[in-house]
Each structure stands twice: as C-alpha cells, then as structure tokens.
Design a binder for these strands. Sequence first.
DNA 1: CCCGACACCTGCCGGC
DNA 2: TGCCGGCAGGTGTCGG
Length: 271
Amino acid sequence: MPELPEVEVTRRGFADRIAGARIEAIRVGKPLRWALSVDPGLLVGRTVRGVRRRGKYLLVDLDLGLLLLHLGMSGSLRFDASLPAAGAHDHFDLVTSQGTLRLNDPRRFGAVVYVEDEASPLAGKLLGGLGMEPLGDSFDFEAFHAGLRRRRAPVKQVLLAGDVVVGVGNIYASEALFLAGIRPTLAASRISRPRALRLHGAIREILARAVDRGGSTLRDFSNVDGQSGYFQLEATVYGRAGEPCRICATPIRQLRQGQRSTYFCPMCQKS
DNA sequence: CCCGACACCTGCCGGC
DNA sequence: TGCCGGCAGGTGTCGG
C-alpha cells in the first residue's frame, strides 16, 4: 500500500495535530517486523515534537529520542481524538493528550522502533543506506545519473532498491518509467544522459502528483482520517496488463522482475 | 561491492 | 460451496 506519496499524505494528516502532545499510554499488539526496543512505560510522559519523513519511514520526534515508523506492505495509520476498541490488526496505539495514533497492519511487515537518536546503530541500519529524497531540492540530477551509471541491474530494480533515490515503490516505478519512455528491463548503466534527465523529472512529477491527489488506493490505502486516495483512477500502466496503452493503444505487458510485477507499454517504452 | 533469491504474514481472488 | 495456488503497495539478510 504505502509508497512515498502515501507515507507523506499520512504524515501531513497528523503531524500538526500531534505536535506538542504528551504521551499518555502505549498499547502494543502482535509482534511487528522489529521489536519496539524499549519498555513502553518509559515513553509515557514524553512530548511529541513533530513528525518527519525519510523515504518511507516516518520519524516521530520526542523531547527525548524518536520513534521510527514503517507501514510495510499493508500498514496504515489513523489519528483521532477517540478510536474504537482495537481490532485484530491494530498492533500499535500511541495514546496522547491530543489523540491516539493507531497502526493497523494485517501482514505485520511494518514496524515501530524506538531509538535514542538518529545516529544510533539501529537507526543507522534502517536509515543509513537510503538514497536521495526525490521531492524538494536535494534530488540532484548529476548524483542521480551517476547512481544509475554504476549499476548493471535493470533500471526498475535500481529504482526499487532505494539506495539511489528513495520512495519509489512498485507502482510508481512502473509509472515513472512509462512517463519517461524507458523500458524497465534496461540496465541502469546504459541509460543515456538525456533519458536519465527525463526519468529524473518523471519520478518527481509522478510522486508529486500522487501526493497532491492524496495517495493511491489500489487496494486499501486510506489517510489518517480513514478517507481513501484516488491515484489509481489515473494509473497508466500499473495493473493494466492486456489493456490498451492510453497513448498508443498497444496492449500493456506484464513481467516479473525480482519477484515483483512490472508493467510497461512495448511501443512507448522501446528501450 | 553488486546482485538476485528469500524471508516475514495475512487476505483476497480466480479456477477447479 | 470449498479448497488451493498465486498474488499483493517493502526491505533486511544471506549466499554467490
């Protein structure tokens, strides 16, 4: 469910509302991908300073330490003054003076991890290898092109790996490559400078547009207020195998790359 | 160092 | 209707 746009939409939905709140209680459900790594009781009484995003991680800054939050494949957050009793897939509640932040995650690939600071070994393991942020000013084209040039793997998989640029998941990788007219199987190292420039722009455009639209709802994404996004209404290739390309009407093709589905138009993405 | 395969877990869908 | 295989938006780890 959550790629960068969904995570960012989620962040914007509760960052201002939770800032300044005092942690009253924490409820932990079934195990997530990693243990919280702190006695929840120790966090009671601390203050939430704000919420940042790095790649697909949310960083909830406290007056002492921070929580790293990841939504995995199926996670979503709600934030409300009052929430119903925890359901089977509600695995983490952060109860604060300004509302409860709740993680619902059926597959439990997500995580909530406490670290003392971003320089800690655990934070370093999770955040240390992340690539450039695609939105904002830090997404440098020269560095992006250099990152592509040193990789022989298919460009789709380099985008997904997240060590060159973060936030591009399986949906938006296909979408961005379509917009840039690049075949997903092309070795990243073989992408020409002009085409890398198009891809750089396409990534920014696709992600920014999805954030504006409120994220994707291919299956079940909803924002912190429980409303769904509607980017899927304009997916050009993702999930459209066999359907006509919106540009040239050629049937969209699907293939497997690294255990993931990729979609592309064989005409519009010749190489 | 780079790469691909695998692992984690639950739900849903299509086919028989 | 029921069961089974395959698939799903992520990413750390491991072996080659």
